[in-house]
Amino acid sequence: MPAFFLVALIIALLPAASASAQSPVIDSARMQTAVKQSWTQAPPEWQTRLTQDETMAACSQYRNNPPRVVAQTIVAREKASIKYPADGKLIGDWKKGQKLAQSGYGGRFTDYPPRTENGGNCYACHQLSGGELSFGTLGPSLLEYGKSRKFSEADVKAVYDRIYNPQAVVACASMPRLGANGHLSIEQIKDLVAYVMSSDSPVNK
């Protein structure tokens, strides 16, 4: 009986204790108000960058660890965003892909009007070719990625999907949705697929 009372007491005290330790609740509407008021000089064509789509909002709310149901919804939604080349060929020119992998150009407010095409900036986060020493570690190493997968067709498609929209594979992945967000074109993504998946690419040498 005393044990029962103790449990009851703890339960009774619980909400009060947690409320006093809790910080004010910041919902997405409160954040959005702050964002709107902090970017007053943004030109009209930049306004969409101040808002979040459903996926961004969910990943922010769950700090990239969404519950299973939310994750499934995200993956299904993002999968539907992927567009494929009309002729079905997913491998482009690895030499062009290499340039794109090196370039971080595009989308920053100093990049307008565009002086060159947008880059994929892959080396900011990934190791790719063994010859490039200046690579980041936010993403996994992709050194010999194609070779280690025997250049299989299934993996070619998987790589295309992952570049076009990584959240079609893993909900709330850190990597940008380069195709779905319109940063890279289908042709550019094909070139990057070639860089990762061609047997003659330095990534696989």
């Binding site: 702050a34 960058r49 996926t55 922010s60 989308g107 319109g182």
Partner: peptide
């Protein structure tokens, strides 16, 4: 206290054409 909570929420807020948050890096 509200500024602190807002700052923490913003640190994890993903946005822009790269889906980046402060927490990404």
């Amino acid at each position: 206290k509200e500024a602190l909570a807002l700052g923490e929420a913003l640190f994890f807020r993903r946005g822009g054409p790269m889906d980046f948050a402060c927490a990404t890096c």
